[in-house]
Design a protein around this nucleic acid. Structure first.
Length: 355
DNA sequence: AAGTCGGGGCT
DNA sequence: AGCCCAGACTT
């Protein structure tokens, strides 16, 4: 295959396109970094509004490094994979301490920062610094799998292909990498690929062999286990109880209404009462079911049973939770909550003070 | 190599 | 009702 010809077709196609990635053409490494971390396993269309708001809130790397994690999580609320926000924040502080606030240009140094893996290191190095580094995301993986008809696209093979294109001497690394990703997302799609409109169609081995739909092979998935969770909307006068989840694990660092898994033989109301005693150390009286929410996470599905409850006795002493707090419902909007709780949060914060 | 980690948009 | 997304990290 003639690498130069492939690149010419690819870049020719790319130049005719309108930008749809907010940080396209951006060379501030901090901005590229923020965008690329947000885009990990998240569609560009979803990321775009978060990206704008995040940079208004934290315009520079020092601004992010000086912020409190809770502010960063609040800006991240709704985007999922909250560990990304925690690691981005951590890495910003590390860049301040180690590099005086200058994002390193060397891929190996980027790779050593929390939350930056092979893809993101290559993306920052190429987009912000113009280095000829591969940035192999799911799109590029799919494009190469089909272009070379690879049954098992391993990393080293993909990286070699990318480096060959980058070394062709045509086009800048940023354009080459972004063109490959654009092609994967808009033409060489997972399903219903637009092969007839593909600038690389005449070079595509999978197309010639009729194996396009089976490249790359679909990943095996196990059925998601289901879990019932009892949640307490615990009132004490005009206040409501919230708790902060541990920083590691699911929804790490986010605030939630306290509760927990419904054990076998237990009702959701029983679970709320038990969990409030075990986790927060208070006695409550559990009332009516307010709302039931079905929600799917990456590896499990849950049904949240939100119950009204009234404080009875005891002092809050967060055990499983890292912190518990009685707050005015009108201030709930200041805290980062999981998406599954937002309907309740919205309802409570708009409610006039309840007695 | 497999499991963990969100949420939503599209088919 | 699945499938997958400009992946990284842990075990």
């Amino acid at each position: 295959m003639r690498t130069g010809l492939v690149i010419d077709r690819l870049l020719g196609w790319y130049r005719t396109r309108d930008r749809h990635v907010p940080w396209r053409g951006e060379t501030d490494p901090y901005c590229v970094w923020v965008g690329e971390v947000m885009a990990q396993q998240t569609r560009i269309g979803t990321v775009a509004p978060y990206y704008q708001r995040f940079l208004e809130r934290f315009p520079t790397l020092p601004a992010l490094a000086e912020a409190h994690l809770d502010e960063v999580l609040k800006a991240w609320q709704g985007m999922g994979y909250y560990g990304r926000a925690r690691r981005l924040h951590l890495a910003a502080r590390e860049v301040m301490a180690k590099y005086g606030g200058d994002v390193p240009e060397d891929p190996a140094e980027l790779l050593a920062l929390p939350g930056i893996g092979p893809y993101t290191a290559g993306a920052i190095a190429s987009l912000a610094f113009g280095r000829a580094e591969p940035a192999i995301d799911g799109n590029v993986r799919r494009v190469f799998s089909r272009l070379f008809d690879l049954e098992l696209p391993d990393r080293s093979r993909l990286e070699a292909a990318a480096r060959e294109l980058l070394a062709s001497g045509r086009g800048d690394a940023a354009s080459v990498n972004q063109a490959l990703m654009d092609l994967g997302s808009d033409v060489c799609r997972p399903r219903n690929p637009a092969c007839e409109a593909c600038p690389l169609g005449s070079f595509c081995l999978a197309r010639a062999r009729g194996t396009v739909e089976s490249r790359p092979p679909p990943r095996a998935r196990r059925p998601l286990p289901h879990q019932n969770v009892g949640v307490g909307i615990v009132r004490r006068g005009e206040l409501v109880l919230i708790a902060r989840r541990p920083e590691s694990g699911l929804l790490g660092g986010l605030w939630e209404f306290p509760g927990g898994k419904v054990e076998t033989g237990e009702s959701p109301a029983d679970a709320v009462r038990r969990e409030l005693m075990e986790e927060i150390g208070i006695e409550i009286e559990v009332g009516d079911l307010i709302e039931r929410i079905d929600h799917a996470y990456s590896h499990l599905r849950v049904t949240l049973h939100f119950h009204a409850a009234i404080y009875v006795a005891g002092e809050t002493q967060a055990r499983a939770a890292s912190e518990a707090r009685w707050v005015d419902p009108k201030t709930l909007g200041d805290y980062a909550f999981p998406a599954a709780s937002l309907s309740i949060v919205s309802r409570l914060s708009q409610q006039r003070a309840a007695g």
